[in-house]
């Protein structure tokens, strides 16, 4: 049962960044403000873990009307900050939830403190219905989400005590990645991924089901889907890509996107390797992936670099993205044995 929720401030509790405001700091996010008050009403405590100066804490207390039981401001890891909050409030980390918009902050906390329930702001809006937050009535969706998070925490705990390489861990927990081509029934989920995956999306452009649907019937395109599961649970469809098949000319990948829930589980690497192999099989001399360059999508750029793609000579796509590419002649990546190709194309 959750007894205290630890909140990030910038772009989480506040609808913007505290230090970047001129004059009045940003207002609280209205949906999360409602969550804050709902949980307070159930006797759940709140705390802050932020990289802002202490004045931000005073501001957030005034702006939300909520008293925070503890606040940690500083530049060391948020996992350490949460550990100090747990000590100060004499709570076990298994009774804490942590909410942050930044996926790397979430990943650091989840890795260091696998007992903490780590949530995105979007998740947090739903969380008051989950059994962990002791609502009067638990909906079946709330139960399902709580089970999914419990599975994730068990996986994190296993990873934290494992000590071997990432690949050894993926093998040990029975990871299964299935790469296939989308059918009509995958379109709603792909649309949702295109809208929600800002941090792991090479284009960050929302796509409609209609736009996606035309691609499933196009001989020049492949609409690729990736599903993920392991012994802890089935995450379903977590990634997608659009591939332009250009015969013996370079093949182009206008969109690669993945849910941040799949980060660190080999999905992007598998998808990029698979695209290299399929394009090479189809006769392409080169694979090109235009990608936005921002601080937030760093994991996407790292995956491109790890797959051997480079942005050479400042070449950009018409919409201003850097074009990452690699030759497909020799030295192709291998697919690990837990990646299954359901297309027969590789």
């Amino acid at each position: 049962m959750i007894k205290c929720v630890v909140w990030d401030i910038d772009n989480t509790l506040l609808d913007g960044i505290y230090l970047e405001s001129t004059g009045q700091p940003p207002d609280p996010d209205q949906e999360l403000l409602a969550v804050l008050h709902t949980l307070s009403g159930r006797g759940i405590l709140h705390a802050l873990a932020t990289r802002n100066p202490a004045e931000a804490v005073d501001y957030v207390q005034r702006a939300t009307g909520v008293r925070f039981a503890a606040a940690e401001c500083g530049w060391d890891s948020k996992a350490d900050a949460i550990g100090r909050i747990a000590d100060e409030l004499s709570l076990g980390t298994d009774s804490l939830a942590f909410i942050d918009d930044d996926m790397l902050e979430r990943a650091e906390v989840a890795a260091a403190l696998p007992q903490v329930l780590v949530l995105t702001p979007e998740d947090a809006i739903q969380a008051p219905d989950w059994p962990d937050f002791s609502p009067d009535v638990v909906t079946s969706e709330g139960r399902r989400r709580a089970d999914m998070y419990a599975a994730r925490q068990r996986r994190q705990a296993e990873a934290a005590s494992f000590g071997g390489s990432r690949d050894e861990f993926l093998r040990r927990v029975g990871t299964r990645i299935v790469i296939g081509l989308a059918t009509q029934e995958d379109l709603p989920r792909l649309r949702e991924l295109s809208v929600r995956t800002h941090q792991l999306n090479s284009a960050d452009v929302p796509l409609t089901e209609q736009e996606l649907g035309t691609l499933t019937g196009s001989a020049e395109h492949m609409l690729v889907i990736v599903a993920l599961a392991d012994d802890f649970g089935d995450d379903g469809l977590v990634g997608g890509a659009i591939v332009e098949r250009n015969g013996f000319r370079p093949w182009l990948v206008p969109v690669v996107m993945m849910s941040c829930r799949a980060l660190g589980r080999g999905v992007l690497d598998a998808l990029l390797a698979w695209m290299c192999l399929v394009a090479a099989n189809g006769g392409a001399p080169e694979l090109a992936v235009p990608c936005l360059v921002s601080e937030r999508n760093l994991p996407m750029r790292l995956a491109l670099a790890a797959a051997g793609l480079r942005a050479a000579g400042g070449e950009t796509s018409p919409d201003g993205r850097a074009i990452f590419k690699r030759s497909l002649e020799g030295g192709l990546p291998e697919l690990p044995e837990w990646v299954h190709d359901a297309t027969g194309l590789r």
Binding site: L104, G264, L268, D269, L302, A306
Partner: peptide
Amino acid sequence: AGLDSLTGAM
């Protein structure tokens, strides 16, 4: 070293 996109970013 077996780094991936997540651990590399961290």
